[in-house]
Amino acid sequence: HMTFVALYDYVASGETDLSFKKGERLQIVNNTEGDWALAHSLTTGRTGYIPSNYVAPSD
């Protein structure tokens, strides 16, 4: 899985969403939902949907 870094803070709007903080590292599990991606946080160990425009690929 590619690793991504959060560009902004995001507060989950539902139970299936994943909250994260700017700078948090995430792995995209499934990116077939258009503007949303299923992601796993390497920081918190949690998995949920995130807005895909809130993250960018990290080196």
Rank of each mutant, 00 (worst) to 15 (best):
H1M: 12
H1G: 14
M2A: 11
M2L: 12
T3H: 11
T3I: 15
F4W: 13
F4H: 08
V5D: 05
L7A: 06
L7M: 10
L7S: 05
L7R: 04
L7H: 05
L7Y: 04
L7W: 06
Y8N: 07
Y8S: 07
Y8L: 08
D9L: 05
D9V: 02
D9F: 03
Y10K: 01
Y10W: 07
Y10H: 05
Y10E: 00
V11R: 06
V11M: 09
A12C: 05
A12Q: 05
A12R: 04
S13N: 10
S13I: 14
S13L: 12
S13V: 15
S13D: 08
G14L: 08
G14E: 08
E15L: 11
E15Y: 08
E15G: 08
T16H: 15
T16N: 15
T16I: 08
D17L: 09
D17M: 13
L18Q: 03
L18W: 03
L18N: 03
S19K: 04
S19T: 09
S19R: 05
K21P: 01
K21Y: 07
K22C: 06
K22Y: 03
K22N: 02
G23R: 01
G23T: 01
E24T: 01
E24Q: 02
E24K: 00
E24R: 00
E24L: 00
R25I: 15
R25D: 03
R25F: 14
R25K: 13
R25G: 03
L26Y: 00
L26G: 00
L26K: 00
L26E: 00
L26W: 01
Q27S: 08
Q27Y: 14
Q27N: 07
I28C: 06
I28M: 08
I28N: 00
I28A: 02
I28W: 04
V29A: 08
V29N: 06
V29S: 07
V29H: 15
N30I: 11
N30T: 14
N30K: 12
N30Q: 12
N31V: 13
N31A: 12
T32Y: 13
T32A: 12
T32P: 12
T32D: 10
G34T: 07
G34N: 07
D35G: 14
A37T: 12
A37C: 14
A37K: 13
L38T: 03
L38E: 04
A39E: 00
A39Y: 05
A39M: 04
H40E: 08
H40I: 15
H40F: 11
H40A: 06
H40T: 15
H40S: 07
S41Q: 04
T43P: 02
T43L: 09
T43I: 09
T44N: 04
T44H: 02
G45Y: 04
G45D: 05
R46K: 13
T47Q: 07
T47F: 09
G48D: 01
G48Q: 01
G48P: 00
G48W: 01
Y49V: 06
Y49D: 02
Y49M: 10
Y49T: 06
Y49N: 05
I50H: 00
I50R: 00
I50V: 10
I50Q: 00
P51H: 03
S52Y: 15
S52W: 15
S52Q: 09
N53M: 10
N53E: 09
N53I: 10
N53R: 13
Y54H: 08
Y54D: 02
V55L: 11
V55W: 07
A56Q: 11
A56V: 14
A56G: 10
P57W: 12
P57E: 09
P57C: 10
S58T: 12
S58R: 07
S58E: 15
D59K: 10
D59R: 10
